[in-house]
Simulated scan of single mutants.
Amino acid sequence: MTASEVVGDLPRRAVVERVVETRLPTRHGTFRAVGYLDRTGTEQVALVYGDVSPLGALTRVHSECLTGDVFGSTHCECGDQLAAALDRIVEEGSGVLVYVQGHEGRGIGLLAKLEAMRLQQDEGLDTVDANVAQGLPVDARDYHAAAGILTDLGIRSVRLLSNNPKKVEQLTRYGIRISEQVPLLVPPNPENLRYLRTKAERMAHLLPHLDQAFAGS
């Protein structure tokens, strides 16, 4: 099964191919895991919970983050957001989490992300300048595959769990209507407060809960 689309003047093409579907029990709840190959050959997965409506489905499009999601790094908020999104979907009774591989380090890759972290720790750069110092984009992520997965799942509009307006813009461009942008705010910690502040001030992420933390920093 493939998902195709026409976006603006982009040609119709296969965006993703559905390969496998299976039950996945987790500590958050039992999901249906749907595995895909995107047009670059990258493996992708969506976790589907409950009977998902095609309109207004609670949805998280989560960028791969090995350090945060797997190792529990406190440098970022990714692991906490992943857990919070899965819990929120289960509490809602239905929803989808699309886990996007190839997005490590906002699309620059694992090794470059580790170097960016070193530059932040050793040379005092922020998360934006640490990418630029390596000659890399601030954010190289593309959400075409994620939109293709949602389309394949029959979802036409979503309530998007995200603080990132650029994610909203890209998914909209690729044909997914955002009926609501739902904040996904997790408490900051001393290790990631500066990182989050940079995302708010330089990348336009919507993080109003940091105001109190800023006052005490």
Results as ranks from 00 to 15, higher is better:
Asp51Met: 05
Asp51Gly: 05
Val52Gly: 00
Ser53Gly: 03
Ser53Trp: 00
Ser53Asp: 13
Pro54Lys: 08
Pro54Phe: 09
Pro54Glu: 11
Pro54Ser: 10
Pro54Ile: 07
Leu55Phe: 12
Leu55Gly: 00
Leu55Glu: 15
Gly56His: 01
Gly56Ala: 02
Gly56Thr: 00
Gly56Leu: 02
Ala57Asn: 05
Ala57Trp: 04
Ala57Thr: 04
Ala57Cys: 07
Ala57Met: 04
Ala57Glu: 03
Leu58Ser: 05
Leu58Met: 06
Leu58Gly: 02
Leu58Pro: 04
Thr59Gly: 03
Thr59Glu: 02
Val61Asn: 08
Val61His: 11
Val61Phe: 11
His62Asn: 05
His62Gly: 03
Ser63Tyr: 08
Glu64Phe: 08
Glu64Thr: 07
Glu64Ile: 07
Glu64Ser: 06
Glu64Gly: 08
Cys65Glu: 06
Cys65Gly: 07
Cys65Asn: 06
Leu66Gln: 03
Leu66Asp: 02
Leu66Glu: 09
Thr67Ala: 13
Thr67Glu: 13
Gly68Phe: 13
Gly68Trp: 14
Gly68Tyr: 13
Gly68Glu: 12
Gly68Ala: 11
Asp69Met: 09
Asp69Lys: 05
Asp69Thr: 03
Gly72Asp: 13
Gly72Val: 12
Gly72Leu: 12
Gly72Cys: 13
Gly72Glu: 13
Gly72Ile: 12
Ser73Ile: 10
Ser73Cys: 11
Thr74His: 13
Thr74Leu: 15
His75Glu: 15
His75Thr: 11
His75Ser: 10
His75Asn: 12
Cys76Phe: 12
Cys78Pro: 12
Cys78Thr: 11
Cys78Arg: 11
Gly79Lys: 08
Gly79Asn: 10
Asp80Leu: 15
Gln81Thr: 07
Ala83Thr: 14
Ala83Cys: 04
Ala83Gly: 14
Ala84His: 14
Ala84Tyr: 12
Ala84Trp: 09
Ala84Ser: 14
Ala85Pro: 01
Ala85Val: 00
Ala85Glu: 00
Ala85Cys: 02
Leu86Arg: 10
Asp87Arg: 15
Asp87Thr: 14
Arg88Ile: 04
Arg88Cys: 07
Arg88Tyr: 00
Ile89Tyr: 08
Ile89Gly: 04
Val90Gln: 08
Val90Lys: 09
Val90Tyr: 10
Glu91Trp: 08
Gly93Pro: 07
Gly93Arg: 09
Ser94Gly: 06
Val96Gly: 01
Leu97Ile: 07
Leu97Arg: 06
Leu97Glu: 03
Tyr99Val: 04
Tyr99Asn: 08
Tyr99Arg: 06
Val100Gln: 11
Val100Lys: 01
Val100Asp: 01
Val100Trp: 03
Val100Asn: 05
Gly102Ala: 00
Gly102Lys: 00
His103Cys: 03
His103Pro: 01
Gly105Trp: 05
Gly105Glu: 03
Gly105Arg: 03
Arg106Gln: 06
Arg106Cys: 08
Gly107Ser: 04
Gly107Met: 02
Ile108His: 01
Ile108Gly: 02
Gly109Glu: 05
Leu110Pro: 04
Leu110Gln: 01
Leu110Asn: 05
Leu111His: 14
Leu111Ile: 13
Ala112Glu: 12
Lys113Ala: 04
Lys113Trp: 02
Lys113Gln: 02
Lys113Tyr: 05
Leu114His: 11
Leu114Pro: 00
Leu114Tyr: 13
Ala116Trp: 01
Met117Gln: 14
Met117Phe: 15
Leu119Asn: 05
Leu119His: 07
Gln120Pro: 07
Gln120Tyr: 10
Gln121Ser: 14
Gln121Thr: 09
Glu123His: 15
Gly124Leu: 10
Gly124His: 08
Gly124Cys: 09
Gly124Lys: 07
